[in-house]
Design a binder for these strands. Structure first.
Lengths: 128, 128
DNA sequence: ACTTGTCTACGAAAACATTCGTATTATGGC
DNA sequence: GCCATAATACGAATGTTTTCGTAGACAAGT
């Protein structure tokens, strides 16, 4: 049995993104979408997805000739893990600093700001 | 001339963190601090720092026998770059989603929440 | 049945990152 | 001046990630 949930590599993340947004897909489908961004050979994508299957990052249905791949790890879990690691690695452990950085450097719409305020409100209620 | 500002590797980030927080340092100093976290050989750190110098991630003063290394790239710039890349890679481009994630999954003190609210207030003022 | 196109499997090259052993050179204390 | 200590330089082994060529299997059309 392989190790559980090793950190996905960059290429693996690209593929996971596709699987998360498109749902279960074939190698051909994933590879086509990746190629909208940059040139990637078909067998390259295939190999990655096979490795991901070994690592249990995805599952696959091999019942028909053309295999169907499905993300096994959850998008939210992955986001959590990577945010945590980024916070540790470049924000000296302060999630707050990351938030400030992200808010300050990306245009955020008034609606989004409202949503964040609502979340803060919730957190404050919980703490009291 | 080498390529400008290649993305730092994980090991390089560890070293940069030290240089950012401690200021210009010797290899010995950096290596000692790294060893508080995990065991790293002295020559390993040295080699990394030499490579970082080639990549222009750091500069070094070689006027005396013991070289003094100094971060050349700014902490804020690096944070910006990495946040941007994380947002693209695992939040489908939405910085907002990252903020929500970070706020939701890390304990944030009331003071910190206040500070974020202040920042949001500022942003709202700018937008109006 | 044969050809053509599409799929998976496999292996290995190439590129990148990490680690450290060894050689050499400089510095300071005696 | 000599020796012990501590520094840099260099190169190579190891590990990980990315890339793709090639081969074989299958399916569909003719």
């Amino acid at each position: 049995m392989a190790k559980q949930n090793p950190r996905p590599t960059e290429s693996e993340l690209e593929i996971l993104q596709v699987l998360w947004s498109e749902g279960p897909s074939t190698v051909r489908e994933v590879n086509s979408l990746l190629n909208l961004e940059r040139e990637v050979g078909y067998t390259t994508t295939l190999k990655h997805m096979q490795i991901m299957s070994e690592k249990s990052l995805v599952t696959r249905d091999t019942s028909s000739r053309t295999h169907i791949y499905k993300a096994k790890i959850l998008e939210a879990d992955t986001q959590r893990t990577l945010v945590k690691s980024l916070v540790e690695k470049v924000f000296g452990g302060s999630a707050m600093d990351l938030v400030m950085q992200a808010l300050g450097n990306h245009q955020t719409s008034p609606e989004e700001l409202e949503e964040i305020k609502r979340l803060i409100q919730e957190l404050e209620n919980k703490q009291s």
